[in-house]
Simulated assay, not measured.
Amino acid sequence: MIQRVWSSIPSWLKNRYSFTILVFLVWMLFFDQNDIISQIELKQQLNSVENKREYYKTQIKETRSDLENLLNDNEKLERFARERYLMKKPNEEIFVIVDEEK
């Protein structure tokens, strides 16, 4: 019985160094704390965070340019205040039209 099992094992696995390397690779790929599956997931998370970082960098640039425009141009500041905060002059009336679909 044991002889039959031993003869069915490939000769390269009978070598203790090959067997040790194989066990080490299996351990590193599947059982270690830093296995290959964890590394792939961490790489995907890193890519996601880097993409979000780039998005927020562009948003910050746009917001800073808008702020600069608002601080330097009174007409744009007045338009922004009227649209965003529904501000009005003393002699005006404002009618707000609400979309019922939203």
Rank of each mutant, 00 (worst) to 15 (best):
S48I: 08
D73R: 14
L46H: 14
S65Y: 08
N47P: 05
Y55T: 08
L22I: 01
I36S: 12
M87T: 15
L77A: 15
V49A: 05
S8F: 09
F31I: 11
S8P: 08
Y56T: 03
F24V: 06
R64D: 02
I21G: 02
K43F: 06
E75Y: 10
D66L: 10
S18E: 04
R4I: 02
K57E: 09
F95L: 11
R4P: 00
L29K: 04
N69H: 06
E83T: 06
K89A: 12
L71Q: 10
E93N: 14
N34D: 13
I97K: 13
Q45A: 12
Q45L: 11
L77V: 00
I21Q: 03
T58C: 02
K61M: 07
L22Q: 03
E75D: 12
Q39S: 03
R4Y: 08
I9G: 15
K88C: 07
I60R: 05
Q44R: 05
I40W: 04
K14W: 01
T63M: 14
V26E: 11
S11P: 02
I60T: 08
E101L: 04
Q44E: 08
Y55P: 05
V26Q: 14
A81D: 09
E75N: 13
L77T: 12
W12Q: 07
I60V: 09
K14T: 06
L77D: 04
D35W: 03
I9F: 15
V5S: 09
I2V: 04
V5P: 06
S48W: 06
L70P: 09
I21K: 04
V26M: 13
W6P: 02
S48C: 02
E62Q: 09
R84Q: 14
D32W: 12
I37A: 15
V26F: 14
E41F: 00
I2A: 04
L13C: 07
I94R: 10
Q44L: 01
S7F: 00
D32S: 13
K76W: 05
E92F: 01
E75L: 13
L71R: 05
K14D: 08
R79N: 13
S8E: 06
Q3R: 00
L22Y: 06
N47R: 12
L25F: 15
P90E: 02
E75S: 02
N51E: 11
F24R: 06
I2K: 08
Q3N: 05
S48H: 07
I2M: 05
M87S: 12
V98L: 09
V26Y: 15
Y56C: 05
M28Y: 15
L25P: 01
K52Q: 14
F24S: 09
L29D: 04
Y56D: 07
S8Y: 09
R4Q: 07
L46T: 12
A81H: 05
E54M: 12
F19Y: 11
S38A: 01
R53Y: 08
D66S: 09
V23T: 15
L77Q: 04
R79I: 11
S11Y: 01
E75Q: 10
D32N: 08
I94W: 06
R16Q: 04
K57F: 11
K102I: 02
R82W: 03
P90A: 07
W6T: 05
Y17I: 07
N15E: 10
V49K: 03
I9E: 12
W27N: 09
M1T: 04
E62Y: 07
E100D: 01
E93G: 13
D32M: 02
Y55R: 10
E41T: 04
K102W: 01
D35L: 06
I94G: 02
L25Q: 10
E75P: 07
E54Y: 09
V98I: 13
F95N: 05
Q45K: 10
